[in-house]
Write a protein that binds this DNA or RNA. Sequence first.
DNA 1: CCGAATCTGGATAAATATCATCCAGGATGC
DNA 2: GCATCCTGGATGATATTTATCCAGATTCGG
Lengths: 158, 158
Amino acid sequence: MSEGVEWGLHCCVTLAWLGDEEPVPAARLAERFQLPPAYLNKCLQALGRAGILTSTPGARGGFRLARAPERITLLDLVTAIEGPEEAFRCTEIRQRCAEANPASREFLRPCAIAAAMHKAELAWRKELAAQTLADLSAAAPRSARDAALRWFGRGEND
Amino acid sequence: MSEGVEWGLHCCVTLAWLGDEEPVPAARLAERFQLPPAYLNKCLQALGRAGILTSTPGARGGFRLARAPERITLLDLVTAIEGPEEAFRCTEIRQRCAEANPASREFLRPCAIAAAMHKAELAWRKELAAQTLADLSAAAPRSARDAALRWFGRGEND
DNA sequence: CCGAATCTGGATAAATATCATCCAGGATGC
DNA sequence: GCATCCTGGATGATATTTATCCAGATTCGG
């Protein structure tokens, strides 16, 4: 799994803590986590296209959550970064057997192997869909949240 | 996920069908599925090191299942090919925050984000562990099994 | 005992994906 | 107007996956 998932998760949790009064520039988030600014920006763009973040261009612009943390699941995040394809992709090698006829009725139903892997993937997605950004923000220690608020200069308001 | 997982699964299901009276050379399995022989061999070697297959060198040698299909789970197979690492790997970017002190007590407990991803991964593994090679062999249509037996010249005995 | 078949493991190369940077263009606020 | 900041494309660096080849060891069959 690409590292952008981890970056995106940390950034979104941070954005959840900060609230959406004021957008946060990508460069500032990169600085916070010591990540490459240009590349982190690419990840945030992907989150924007997926409707998880909204971006505001221009001075004092940046990113903020597009909706309440309770309504953003980990599955949303992971799918936005990694894409919607499953980890296991069936290449239908059963149809490459010498005698196999691709038009055979046998191939109408899915490959049992692909079905088994798919079932596991569904379990994974279900678990991801069951956890929201709000859960993550709450699970982190208060000290982490407080430190973030201070670092971003939001300690006073919130 | 690497394609070797799919190859390994198909090969193992086939070996389950054939029984373990006689080992099957890697080259023959490659021919069956039209896969690159040398590279498929590497995958089978990995399954051998993982204790899923046993290999016998020399003429009339090849691979066979190391134990009954009921006792080989999909998790065994996937782990053998993909390795034991989790898909999401936490790089502890929370510790890279400017003010963070790596010795802090806060970092003794795992990162909430990593824990959430880990939970999903466990659900995936659990589902994989619940399915065995025997289940897969049984789920495939009889015609596929029969065709394999014929192709490998084992139609008469079994 | 010889030779063909076969696995083992290392070296290597090709193809692809991931990670990362840069830049031109457009939008926004001061 | 100008500094800030997102957007998207082009490009390059690095890592991983896929694939090949070969020398060495082992076994079978004659």
